[in-house]
C-alpha cells in the first residue's frame, strides 16, 4: 500500500526532517479535503488534530457579535494550522474555516503527543518547526498590532 510518507517529505513543513523520524509520524497522518466554507476547527472546541495544508486557503477567524467574523490571518499551501493540540487543555483558540477547496494532511493530536513523548529526537525536530511558525506569527502579529498604516505610528 502506498503511504503518505512521500507527500509528507515534500511538504515545506517537513523540509530537512530525517526520513527515519518522518517514518514514525506516518501512522498519525491521514489525507483530508475541505470544501469552501467548511469549518476545520472551532474556537473553544477540543483540538484533537492539526493540519498541514497541501493546497487551498484557510482563514483563522474570531466572531464578534457586533462585527461578525473577523479574519486574523489566512493560511495557504505549505502552512500549518496551529499548535493547540500540543498543549493542555487541547482546545482551539480560533475558528479555522476553509475559504477555498482545501486539501490537507490531518495529524491526530493524541497519536502525535504519544510519539513525541516517546522519542525526544522526534519531539525536538517537531518543536523546532513549530517554534519557527510561532515566532513568525508572533512577529507578524506585532506588526499587525501596531496598525502601521494608521496615523499613529
Amino acid at each position: 500500500m502506498e503511504t503518505l510518507e512521500p507527500i509528507l517529505a515534500e511538504h515545506p513543513f517537513f523540509k530537512g526532517m530525517p526520513p527515519e523520524l518522518l517514518k514514525l509520524l506516518v501512522g498519525c497522518a491521514s489525507n483530508v479535503k475541505f470544501e469552501a466554507g467548511d469549518f476545520i476547527s472551532r474556537e473553544g472546541q477540543e483540538a484533537s488534530e492539526f493540519f498541514i495544508i497541501r493546497q487551498g486557503k484557510v482563514a483563522l477567524e474570531l466572531f464578534s457579535p457586533t462585527h461578525g467574523a473577523i479574519t486574523v490571518e489566512t493560511l495557504e499551501d505549505g502552512d500549518v494550522t496551529g499548535w493547540s493540540w500540543l498543549l493542555p487543555p487541547y482546545r482551539s483558540h480560533f475558528d479555522a474555516r476553509a475559504v477555498d477547496l482545501t486539501r490537507a494532511i490531518r495529524f491526530d493530536g493524541k497519536c502525535m503527543r504519544a510519539k513525541l513523548e516517546e522519542d525526544h529526537n522526534l519531539g525536538y525536530e517537531m518543536l523546532k518547526r513549530f517554534v519557527r511558525i510561532i515566532a513568525e506569527r508572533l512577529s507578524a502579529t506585532r506588526i499587525q498590532l501596531l496598525d502601521i498604516y494608521g496615523t499613529r505610528v
Binding site: G68, I70, T71, T74, A140, Q144
Partner: peptide
C-alpha cells in the same frame, strides 16, 4: 495582496505584508 484585518467577506489573504514574502 494582503490585508492586516478583514471581515469574512474578504476572500484574499489576511496577514501583514511580510507574510507574502515567505513563499
Amino acid at each position: 495582496v494582503t490585508v492586516d484585518r478583514a471581515s469574512s467577506e474578504w476572500h484574499g489573504n489576511v496577514g501583514v505584508v511580510t507574510t507574502l514574502l515567505k513563499k
